Amino acid sequence: MRVADLLKKKGSSVVTLPSTATVAQLLETLDDHKIGAVVVVDDDRVVGIVSERDVVHHLRGGGDHFSSLTSLMTSDVQTVTAEDDLVQLATTMTERRLRHLPVVEDGALRGIVSIGDVVKARLDALEAERDMLEDYLRR
């Protein structure tokens, strides 16, 4: 299964904010959408990603709610393409301890994949395989 297959099922919608947004705006966005990370986009270009974990580190370190996202976002963003394999992606996400990866094609944001998406896709595939084997054994 590829990232493109996953995006067909879950959709390609991505919640984004500009780098000029504040931590307070980020918190509101995370809560409103019930998500764990936001892709930071300026001029239709991915410039960062910021997660709940980043907010915790920022606030614990004395940062305030009025800081811009540039003060806490990860600017060296690991991305994937629609053609990437989900099994390899799961390994990469686990080894690098990444929970969210933006999907970028030709410099444009096309979606986002979470570790939960990858696990769900894998479980769905295993369940389908089990069902096929049970069907085969019943014949």
Rank of each mutant, 00 (worst) to 15 (best):
M1P: 14
M1R: 08
R2C: 12
R2P: 00
R2Q: 12
A4L: 03
A4I: 02
A4H: 04
K8H: 15
K9E: 13
K10H: 12
K10M: 07
S12W: 00
S12H: 02
V15R: 11
V15H: 03
L17Q: 07
P18T: 09
P18A: 14
P18Y: 05
T20D: 13
A21H: 02
A21L: 06
A21W: 12
T22H: 04
V23Q: 02
V23H: 11
V23M: 09
V23A: 07
A24W: 15
T29A: 10
L30R: 02
L30Y: 04
D31K: 10
D31P: 10
D31M: 07
D32H: 10
H33N: 04
I35E: 14
V39A: 14
V40F: 07
D44Y: 05
R45L: 05
V46Q: 03
V46T: 07
V47I: 04
G48N: 08
G48V: 01
I49K: 05
V50R: 15
V50Y: 11
V50K: 05
S51R: 04
S51K: 05
E52G: 08
R53Y: 12
R53C: 11
D54N: 10
V55K: 01
V56K: 06
V56F: 11
R60Y: 11
R60D: 14
G63F: 09
D64P: 03
S67T: 09
S68T: 08
L69V: 13
L72V: 11
M73K: 08
M73I: 12
M73V: 15
T74K: 05
T74Q: 08
S75C: 03
D76Q: 10
D76R: 05
Q78W: 13
T81W: 15
A82F: 13
A82V: 03
E83N: 07
E83P: 07
E83M: 02
D85R: 00
D85H: 04
V87D: 06
V87Y: 06
V87Q: 01
V87C: 07
L89F: 05
A90Y: 08
A90Q: 09
M93Y: 03
M93W: 06
T94Y: 11
T94K: 07
T94C: 13
T94P: 08
E95S: 13
E95P: 14
R96W: 08
R97Y: 10
R99K: 12
R99L: 06
H100R: 00
L101I: 09
V104M: 03
D106V: 12
D106K: 02
G107C: 00
L109C: 07
R110V: 09
V113W: 14
S114C: 09
G116N: 14
D117A: 07
K120D: 13
A121C: 13
R122Q: 12
D131E: 08
M132C: 13
D135F: 07
D135W: 10
Y136G: 00
Y136C: 00
Y136A: 01
L137Y: 00
L137F: 00
R138G: 02
